[in-house]
């Protein structure tokens, strides 16, 4: 993989990001990343993009009122978190 053809990186980047890559392809890719700042930035910012969305999702919760309606509809109101002794 040379620097004139960085788009080659994209063919393996998905497996690389998911840790599901053949060892020899991984070695070639990491060699390329060591010498190519642009590709390194793309990989780093892709990783960061994924982690930002993942972290944001963990914080997005169903509103309390909606949860209460759900438990009521399912006849589980006595199990609604925060209402049991």
């Amino acid at each position: 993989m040379d620097h004139d053809n960085c788009s080659e990186l994209l063919k393996s980047i998905e497996d690389y990001l998911d840790g599901d890559i053949q060892p020899e392809v991984c070695t070639r890719l990491e060699e390329h990343l060591r010498g190519c700042q642009n590709c390194r930035i793309v990989v780093d910012t892709l990783r960061k993009t994924i982690s930002l969305y993942h972290d944001e999702a963990c914080q997005e919760m169903m509103p309390d009122k909606m949860r209460e309606h759900l438990y009521m509809e399912l006849n589980l109101l006595d199990y609604l978190p925060g209402t049991r002794e």
Binding site: M62, Y79, P81
Partner: peptide, 15 residues
């Protein structure tokens, strides 16, 4: 157990 299931999966289903 049904309540535990709802508690575990209601937030992802909401999202």
């Amino acid at each position: 157990e049904l309540a535990a299931l709802v508690e575990q999966f209601s937030n992802p289903v909401y999202r």
